[in-house]
Write a protein that binds this DNA or RNA. Structure first.
Length: 468
RNA sequence: GGCGGGGUAGCCAAGUGGUAAGGCCGGGCUCUGCAAAAGCCCUAUGCGUGGGUUCGAUUCCCACCCCCGCCUCCA
């Protein structure tokens, strides 16, 4: 994308420094980005997708700024939950998780998420994890517990706690301390390899230690290094992963490589539903499909999860909020439909100061820690401004061009309706009736179309129809 | 207890040391056979509370009150 103005530095909040910092890629223009993906034991919910949507926004913004992003997102397809759920379903682990991987990919498409370049599965990298753990043991960062599991020794890593800003000496066992905790040297030590237990059923891999399976954190370290290198530019995830997951990843990775693991830590705040945390007992865990069933389309959902608040701000999901977003998307659609139906001859202003100003503001907002909320504000200013020009019949700048740029970021797609033949026929009949000022027939057809799920509007350019 | 985030109009939400973007809702007008859309106008002397610094603070400092998250496997 070429801009007629200089691009500002791209600044992003870095969890580890707690400051806004310019992106400094290791090998510009490439940016290596790893995102902790879903645990595939059920359908992902809107909270999960809010995070992935923000990661997607980050990627799109970086690409707009000319960076070549290499995006990796893993699938956690082995852990307590996947094992338990697959056994309960009477399926093998792979059969079971594949079902939810497929569902997740479908949902990603629904929400117009760009496909990551790599989507590795934990179960396909067991060998590499074993090698990784072996190195940790060799370097005396890990030890074998009495139960045969392998644990990371946090005392061996002086920087432990640098991401979450927790002091390892102050870590105290919580109420949910596990029965086998006494096996570990320090309650902060965490499992790299888990020895097989009866409840694991058939699941287990042969290793230099007991038969078993990898701990959770090791997969991300292994796959991040495997696909993107010892040090990467950006590592993403939900805020809940800061501790212990990402803290542990740092400890493992830096202990093995002796290098800095991640330059920029990007964390997305959580979603609440009607002011409350999503939970099974409240029955307020919504999946993408749940939202669509409520009659909201996927573009509204994407728009809402992306723009209702800044990514570092908790998003309180409400139906009222969804309705507001639906109206906002409709307003954008009306504007698109309006200028797209104008003759080419009306777009005469190749150079238009106001357009440049708008694009500049939009881009600068994004460069300022992905301030999408502000960027959208500029978009609506631009919409109002150009609607006014259209009202007056003034020459217009090439609106399609600026919209395309904006939609590179928003990803809510073009407003395009495929009108089925039967609807087309009714519209023609109505147009005919209107020509003869046969209002009764005109209104009857409009009513009929509405019952069929189509809204029709009369504009100076003729009828316009779209699906509810 | 430790660490962090937040309290801005009916709802959502940016933001700045000089006097409050934007969206939704609501009201008025214009346009229109009607409807819808669109445009224009209106809608916070006010930014949790109390002090302080300042010519001036919602924005800086101090104290206090609420809400939320994390503190071992939840995005």
């Amino acid at each position: 994308m070429n801009f007629s103005f200089p691009l500002p530095p791209f600044r992003l909040y870095n969890t580890i420094s707690r400051k806004l910092e310019p992106i400094k890629p290791i090998n510009p223009p490439h940016v290596t980005m790893y995102a902790c993906g879903p645990t595939v034991y059920n359908l992902a919910h809107i909270g999960n997708f809010r995070t992935f949507l923000c990661v997607d926004l980050l990627r799109r913004a970086l690409e707009l700024f000319g960076y070549k992003v290499i995006h990796t997102m893993n699938y956690t397809d082995i852990d307590d939950k996947t094992i338990a759920a697959s056994r309960a379903a009477g399926l093998s682990l792979v059969e079971y998780t594949q079902k939810y991987i497929d569902a997740f990919e479908q949902d990603m498409q629904t929400l117009h998420l760009l496909k990551p370049h790599f989507q590795p599965k934990a179960t396909e990298h067991i060998e590499k994890m074993i090698e990784f753990i072996r190195q940790l043991i060799d370097k005396n960062h890990a030890y074998i517990g009495e139960d045969g599991s392998v644990y990371f020794r946090i005392a061996s890593f002086p920087d432990y706690g640098k991401l979450s800003h927790l002091e390892k000496d102050k870590l105290k066992p919580g109420s949910h301390i596990l029965a086998d905790e006494y096996i570990k040297e320090h309650y902060g030590d965490f499992a790299l390899w888990k020895a097989k237990k009866p409840e694991d059923g058939e699941v287990g891999w042969i290793s230099p230690w007991e038969i078993g399976r990898p701990g959770w954190h090791i997969e991300c370290s292994t796959m991040s290094i495997c696909y993107l290198g010892n040090e990467i530019d950006i590592h993403c995830g939900g805020v809940d992963l800061i501790f212990p997951h990402h803290e542990n990843e740092i400890a493992q990775s830096e202990s093995v490589t002796g290098q800095n693991f991640v330059r920029h830590w990007f964390h997305v705040a959580h979603v609440l539903v009607e002011g409350e945390k999503m939970s099974k007992s409240l029955g307020n865990i919504y999946t993408i499909r749940d939202i669509l069933e409520r009659g909201f389309n996927e573009r509204t959902l994407r728009y809402h999860l992306l723009t209702a608040s800044h990514y570092r701000q908790t998003l309180n999901f409400t139906w009222q909020g969804m309705e507001a977003s639906r109206e906002a998307v409709k307003r954008i659609d009306q504007w698109l439909s309006r200028f797209q139906s104008l003759p080419k001859s009306q777009f005469q202003l190749q150079e238009y100061e106001e357009e440049t100003r708008f694009l500049r503001c939009f881009v600068e907002a994004l460069a300022d820690d992905l301030n999408i909320t502000e960027a959208i504000g500029h978009l609506f200013d631009w919409i109002r401004h150009t609607n006014r020009m259209m009202d007056k019949g003034e020459p217009l700048p090439p609106l399609q061009r600026s919209w395309q740029l904006v939609d590179t970021i928003l990803g809510i797609g073009e407003f395009s309706v495929e009108i089925p033949p039967e609807i087309q026929t009714l519209l023609q009949m109505r147009a005919e009736a209107r020509k003869n000022k046969n209002w009764a027939t005109s209104d009857r057809i409009r009513q009929q179309l509405q019952e069929m799920g189509w809204i029709v509007q009369d504009t100076p350019e003729g009828q316009k129809a779209w699906k509810v």
